[in-house]
Write a protein that binds this DNA or RNA. Structure first.
Lengths: 235, 235
DNA sequence: CGTATCATTGACGTCGGTCAATTCGTGTGG
DNA sequence: CCACACGAATTGACCGACGTCAATGATACG
């Protein structure tokens, strides 16, 4: 299996971001050796649900995954939008039920590790543990920013800010490609803490201003510069 | 210096939580050896400001510290409330300016490490790196919860939920002590994304219901059970 | 075609913000 | 010991951003 994994690792589209970024081609073996397999999911499928006990850790290599939390009256908050290179599923303690659900927004490819294997990998290669700590720190900054949006920005600011952030992230992964956001307006509402209706009203404005293009279940960022300008002085 | 640090580590009030929790008394040397010193700050003093380049990492051993972010029109969002045992200040990359500010809500004692030393500590003791990853994961869950509050809970739910969470955390650190929250109403507003005025209105209600006691710049949780009950079905 | 999902639009209501005044508590200097 | 200053808390009046409800349209998919 390891040999097979190594070949896939070499071809991995997310090899140069996230966990494996610091590894040279020769070093991929180290990770490949601990890897447990790949998984392919269709849009709308769940990787795990809140409350599940999951003994795996994941590296997203293709597609978009959403982490969300449900209140028991059905209100939903999308916590993170994961793009290729995201390393996720780590829990503070083994056997602890997941605090959130993970669902695919698009078809997705996911590289799977057993939690125990990853822990052993970290113990063997402390540099990868340090790398993971850095990834956690980066992730934390992104979440802090999200938090600031929900707490202190207006509806329009939240949406513009989200689109700018996604645009940046997409550019970092696939420079040159058109920035297409495969999220429904309801999902954008669940990210930004707004109602689907209000999201629509604001997207209409942005479209009228020429900043975005709207189609069914998808959204294209045409003029990120224009969006940034809208953000104005609001850092 | 190391010997001195070791003595202080042995007496540290936060020895049994956070980073040092898994260390036996004999192992404290490992951390003490890498430690750089202690710092004492008064309420209202800053440990660092957004934009600073900080080459230190911190372990909060006494007091309350608030991490916050400012928008440039002055809106403020408090991102995290740190209690003793918090290990913070890690950045994704060295020499990267801090993305937020850290201010003391009370007098505070802080154990200081140089970033480089901590990295070396992690490389030498991978188990501590793994421990740190677990702390990050725990922290992430707390932030996710905060995020959910800001995005999807009503004002009253946010405040009740915050108080319940703080009550739990205080209980874990100092069981039996009265749950006193040394935050002004304006600060509570900056945590919950509400205005000072609205926070006051809701705290008045909670006081009338006998759940909390209000004094100047401080708030006591009298009946956490009552608060939990208010949370009702809203997980 | 029939059905389901997503987007769109208007009418209306309300939660929580803003503004502004007042009170309270504590510390300070005279 | 008292007058004052200042930060925090309190209160009321008003308003507007955003939610809710409900109907309709558009598109994909089986």
């Amino acid at each position: 299996m390891t040999a097979g994994h190594r070949l896939r690792c070499l071809a991995c589209k997310a090899r140069h971001v996230g966990l494996c970024q610091p590894l040279g081609g020769g070093e991929l073996d180290v990770v490949a050796r601990f890897k447990n397999g790949d998984r392919r999911l269709a849009a709308g499928e769940h990787l795990y649900h809140e409350g599940d006990v999951v003994n795996e850790v994941y590296n997203l290599t293709g597609g978009w995954v959403l982490l969300y939390h449900l209140l028991d009256d059905g209100r939903r908050q999308i916590l993170e939008i994961l793009l290729p290179g995201a390393f996720f599923g780590l829990q503070p303690d083994a056997n602890q039920p997941m605090s959130h659900s993970a669902v695919c927004a698009t078809a997705a490819e996911i590289c799977v590790f057993r939690r125990r294997d990853i822990m052993n990998l970290f113990l063997e290669r402390a540099d990868l543990a340090v790398r993971t700590i850095a990834l956690c720190a980066r992730e934390r900054i992104a979440i802090h920013d999200h938090l600031t949006s929900l707490g202190r920005r207006t509806a329009r600011e939240r949406i513009v800010h989200l689109l700018v952030e996604i645009d940046h992230r997409l550019r970092a992964i696939q420079p040159g490609a058109p920035a297409i956001v495969p999220l429904t307006q309801a999902q954008i509402g669940d990210v930004t803490g707004l109602s689907e209706v209000h999201v629509n009203r604001i997207l209409q404005d942005l479209r009228a201003e020429g900043a975005v293009e709207i189609s069914r279940g998808m959204l294209q960022i045409l003029r990120p510069d224009k969006l940034t300008e809208f953000e104005g002085v609001v850092a």
